[in-house]
Simulated scan of single mutants.
Amino acid sequence: MTYPSHATALITGGASGIGAACAKTLASAGVMVVTADINGGDEHLDVSDPQAVEGLRDRLGRIDILVNCAGVVGPSSPLAETSLDDWHRTFRINVDGTFLMCRAFVPAMIRAGWGRVVNMASIAAKDGNPNQSAYSASKAAVIAMTKSLGKEIATTGVLVNAVAPAAVTTPMNATTDSAVLERSQRLTPMQRMGEPEEVAELVAWLCSNSVSFSTGAVYDISGGRASY
């Protein structure tokens, strides 16, 4: 895989899990990587804070690659027992955060005539995990946003795609309801959870020059779980 010379990638949620694996994989390919995270990373960032996102854009200037990995699982509870505050928090981080980052950084990519955006969705966006209505719905919104933006800027040289993993062994899933994780593993033909490095390889490909005729698409990485 090749990337533009002196390419810069910004990865949210880059201090751990899939984000950290993406940072390592892209850096090993010669891409200059900046990680942004609320818990560490090169830049401290709350992706749901519009002023913080705009401030980061003003500090960094144009980037070539944006990988939106910041996210939360949210409440693991029946929909009727999910509080509105928990619902809103899940959407603020997973959906608003992705929207704010794209809104801040994509325009400069368009002006430059080249860019890659990869948004982290989930197989739950397609299947709908029971007792995870907020998470499933928020990741479905990420998929719809990706499809819309990909079509909107399809002729600009900027490609926008999403990745939809099944359960992955990340710190974010360390506090996920064990019943949810067990269900995911039962539904996965490979009968295991994914590893962050496996997701990072797919993300790195989507960020490269190797991809030129795909935008607004969703790439499953689910150990065979995906059915459509």
Rank of each mutant, 00 (worst) to 15 (best):
L159V: 06
A204E: 01
V34S: 14
S208T: 04
K139I: 09
P165R: 01
V72W: 02
A108L: 09
A27R: 10
R225V: 06
I123K: 13
A140L: 15
H6P: 05
D46H: 05
G150Q: 03
C22Y: 04
V199M: 05
V73T: 14
A108Y: 10
I11V: 12
G41Q: 00
N209C: 09
S138L: 07
E197I: 10
T90I: 03
S133F: 09
S138P: 13
A29Q: 11
D220G: 13
A141G: 07
A27C: 09
S48H: 07
D46C: 08
G128D: 07
S210G: 13
T90M: 05
S184N: 14
P78M: 15
T175P: 11
M172D: 00
T215G: 05
D37C: 01
G40R: 00
S212R: 14
W87E: 03
L202T: 04
L159T: 08
A166F: 01
G223M: 04
V203L: 00
K139W: 05
A15D: 11
A104C: 04
V218G: 05
V163Y: 00
A15C: 10
T170Y: 05
T8F: 10
A174I: 01
P4M: 09
C102I: 08
L79Q: 11
S222N: 12
D42C: 03
V160N: 04
S212Q: 11
